[in-house]
Design a protein around this nucleic acid. Sequence first.
DNA 1: CTGTTAGCGCCTTCAT
DNA 2: ATGAAGGCGCTAACAG
Lengths: 344, 344
Amino acid sequence: MTKKTTIYDIAKKLNLSAATVSRALNGNTRISEETRAKVLKVADSLNYEQNKLARALQSGKSYSVGVIVPRIDNNFLSSVIRGIEEELQDSGYHVIICQTHESPEREIENINTLLNAQVDGLLLSTCNVSDENFKLITKVINKNIPVVFFDRKIDVPEASSVTIDDYMGAYLATMHLIKEGATKIAHFSGDKNLQIYESRYKGYCDALKKSNIAYNEDYVIKVRSKIDDGKAALKQLFTLKDKPNALFSSSDFAALGAIQELKANKIDVPNEFSVFGFGNEPFTQFNELSISSVDQSPIKMGKLTATVFLEKIQNKLDKGTKNIVLEPELQYRASSNKKDNVTV
Amino acid sequence: MTKKTTIYDIAKKLNLSAATVSRALNGNTRISEETRAKVLKVADSLNYEQNKLARALQSGKSYSVGVIVPRIDNNFLSSVIRGIEEELQDSGYHVIICQTHESPEREIENINTLLNAQVDGLLLSTCNVSDENFKLITKVINKNIPVVFFDRKIDVPEASSVTIDDYMGAYLATMHLIKEGATKIAHFSGDKNLQIYESRYKGYCDALKKSNIAYNEDYVIKVRSKIDDGKAALKQLFTLKDKPNALFSSSDFAALGAIQELKANKIDVPNEFSVFGFGNEPFTQFNELSISSVDQSPIKMGKLTATVFLEKIQNKLDKGTKNIVLEPELQYRASSNKKDNVTV
DNA sequence: CTGTTAGCGCCTTCAT
DNA sequence: ATGAAGGCGCTAACAG
């Protein structure tokens, strides 16, 4: 209804120039306290609100950052976003969120959308590692827009990243299964083009090696992070003559599917078969048979991602890259603890 | 690095005016196909991208909508957001997300932030019903910025809403418990200032009345949507002389807490005590004892919310309000099904 | 301390 | 079919 009031409105009312008003509003020091007080008062009475769009156009900064994730409706990613948002809030930045649904094309579209929206930074958990992707991100960086990967990264020069030590998480989880007596350990892997899954796979392999357990390629199955994939993969494992007696899954969802399938087969978890997941999704605790899992501290990851961006934006000179690797925290729960099988 | 290319760059290169370029790019008809082709070609070769900020400033539309939610890291809300985002994507709108963490002050701050960001619309699930809040939202509407509530609404003239029929969901859930033989039914309620909780409470009450079961105020406990609150509330119920034998909880989380506590007390669910939740959080399915719950179809809710916004923005003339009420879908699971106690 | 001028990039009259 | 000019709201540079 009422037209937006601008600095001109308040300037006119006070017989001042717009510049003066702008200065008064922005805390410029070279202005009399008296004028400032008047300006502030009139601004308030007129319900003045700065038009950020105009400011953004003028300054070349939009005070918005783009966040790209595979999807928002899962606990890990939404928690990371929560962390990002909380950390950014105080600095006046807001967050624009896009989802790729694991589609590389969509990821490219999203990056372009955000570029057009003049975001000051790009925080992303990629779903892809193609050349095209790499080139586009390089282009973003060349525009002096800081790029910070979180969780799922690609190695692009001058891009920063915040990840967890997937290798170590996987290694420790597998070692734990071995320590608990497992001898034949299966692994549910993800798309190995993505570093996180590659690293988890390597951690698994190295734990076997370290323990002098032979690698069995039949035991490694690629799944999507879904309950049904976990069920199917477990079925597949149980068609083998030499069945495994433990599982390290890169995905909590697949781990849950496996457990459900084991239960359907009347296999005692963890006594006959133990399971370790990855992600520490809430349901791993809630499950009647609580599921061991590797925690990825999503909120911390989000906050750090935002912090790295803020640092970058503050000292542009610094072409340096920051690559933070968080330590995973293992949650040992009933699904892998034979000794004291505690149910929550 | 490379400065953004503008329509002037491409105009200069072609010895045309910026206006012509703008027209060519925007599909204006009064332009020769030849010129258009040239413009498009050069634009492409120069990697031209429209500066949305400038366009926004000029047009007064930002092509962004603000979404305010209590928090993003829970399944229901992140799914709604997913729905919103998907529906809006094709229309060129993007989504700016803010969280209130159930703080009324934060909600007001967020609305102001979004206003400053010149959002074209406001979609919100409120955490508050204060006067100040009401006035601010009225102000937003008076600026001709459409407001659409989802899930948690307040009644503001000219604001639209998309909700589910909480009353009916609660009524049917309670009726189901009664049909399954429950005679003394407790209720976990939420903040009754919020319509959703008030409606669920009423649905519960009316189901009792309909079935000639006396209302017992000791059976109604206010909880936050947390597992621990559910545990504590159940403990409290079990201090009563006349203990209930069923529970309709407004929150899945509290329902889960109750079930955990019942289990700790060796009470057989559902045979000695049956439970119905609300929200259909994923864990209600995953739980070993699957939990009956009222589904709120979050993605559909999100899509509809976005659709209502788009309709509003398209025909501004229409001062009309749209209030969509979705039918809840009840999921009858093991926690309340005495007859065929199926575990998933 | 304050005013004037100019420009961020785009679109939209109004001319031609 | 195209060009010139002005303005969206704000701030920075340069005067005074």
